[in-house]
């Protein structure tokens, strides 16, 4: 609708404007003839208007003549103008028509073009759509592929994981077994070592125990008139090297003579034979001695 309105207004505009312009120019000529008698440098400068002015401005006489002529001619001119106007109008009409025609053609063209464009757009859209579809499909495909791959990957990793796990478990089991064996072996070795050490220690302890026993017995003067069933229990503390530091009567025999004889014997035997190795000696730091006068050493002199 808007198209049609625009077209109607524009069809009268051009001839109207032309007519107004012509009238304006003519009026301007009339009122500016005198002043324009002296050419001005400015006019020289102006090329196009000069042409127009030259043709019109001559001299006063001429002007009056002209004016008369013009006045004469004005009628003509008016007539001409009217004719012209009519011609112009006609032209305008024709132009408008042509313009309308043209516009219609243009419109058609435009429409065609639009149509074409539309078609093209449609085509393009379709193509685009197809492309998009394709792309979409491809994407989808790729997606699914990726998904698949992913799944496969997941599956693979899962597999790998499980395998690894199984392997690990197997390895762990194996390790456990080995570790257990090692532990058992270690324990056995430790036990054997401990036993060996204990046996060695016990051997040393026994050796020195016998020596200590002999050392004290050889100095133990059994008191006269003593009950052979009595016994004295002493606790002896030794310093490294076997020096007797302290002797305590833990359980008296009931006869102080026996207690004293036992204590004196221990002191006399100081330093007692003990191993020099500190760890071994530790076993000899405290001795619990039971002295029971059951008999007399026959070898003593």
């Amino acid at each position: 609708m808007s198209f049609s309105v625009e077209t109607k207004t524009s069809s009268y505009k051009l001839p109207l404007i032309l007519a107004i312009m012509v009238h304006a120019i003519l009026i301007w000529f009339i009122f500016t003839n005198v002043e324009l008698a002296v050419p001005t440098p400015v006019a020289q400068k102006r090329q196009k208007p000069v042409d127009i002015v030259k043709a019109v401005a001559v001299n006063q006489a001429q002007v009056e003549d002209e004016i008369a002529k013009i006045k004469a001619g004005q009628q003509q001119k008016q007539q001409r103008q009217a004719a012209q106007q009519r011609k112009l109008q006609k032209l305008a009409q024709q132009a408008a028509q042509a313009r309308a025609k043209e516009q219609a053609r243009l419109k058609q063209l435009k429409a065609e073009q639009a149509k074409l464009q539309k078609l093209q757009a449609q085509k393009q859209r379709a193509a685009e759509k197809r492309l998009a579809d394709l792309k979409k499909r491809q994407a989808a495909q790729q997606q699914s592929l990726a998904k698949l791959e992913k799944q496969q990957a997941v599956a693979a990793t899962e597999n790998a994981k499980q395998e690894a796990l199984a392997k690990q478990q197997a390895a762990q089991a194996q390790q456990k077994k080995i570790a257990q064996q090692e532990a058992a072996k270690q324990a056995a070795e430790d036990k054997a070592a401990t036993q060996a050490r204990a046996q060695e220690l016990q051997g040393v302890v026994n050796k020195y125990a016998v020596m200590i026993k002999q050392s004290i017995e050889q100095r133990w003067i059994i008191p006269d008139n003593i009950n052979k069933d009595m016994s004295t229990k002493l606790q002896v503390r030794l310093a490294p090297g076997g020096t007797v530091v302290d002797v305590r009567v833990i359980t008296s025999s009931g006869d102080t003579r026996l207690d004293r004889s036992a204590r004196a014997a221990v002191f006399k035997a100081s330093p007692l034979p003990v191993p020099s190795e500190p760890q071994m000696f530790d076993r000899f730091r405290v001795l619990n001695l039971t002295l029971r006068p059951e008999g007399v050493l026959t070898s003593s002199t």
């Binding site: 430790d190 401990t194 302890v205 125990a209 200590i212 026993k213 004290i216 017995e217 050889q218 100095r219 133990w220 003067i221 059994i222 008191p223 606790q235 004889s261 036992a262 014997a265 530790d282 076993r283 000899f284 405290v286 001795l287 619990n288 001695l289 039971t290 002295l291 029971r292 006068p293 059951e294 008999g295 007399v296 050493l297 003593s300």
Partner: peptide, 28 residues
């Protein structure tokens, strides 16, 4: 385990027990 064994077996062994049954027959 060893510590346990050590702890529970050593106290009885830490002090050496000796029994002496013979002496000498000698003037004091």
């Amino acid at each position: 385990l060893l510590t346990y064994l050590f702890l529970f077996s050593v106290p009885s062994q830490a002090e050496l027990n000796l029994e002496l049954t013979k002496g000498i027959d000698r003037a004091l």
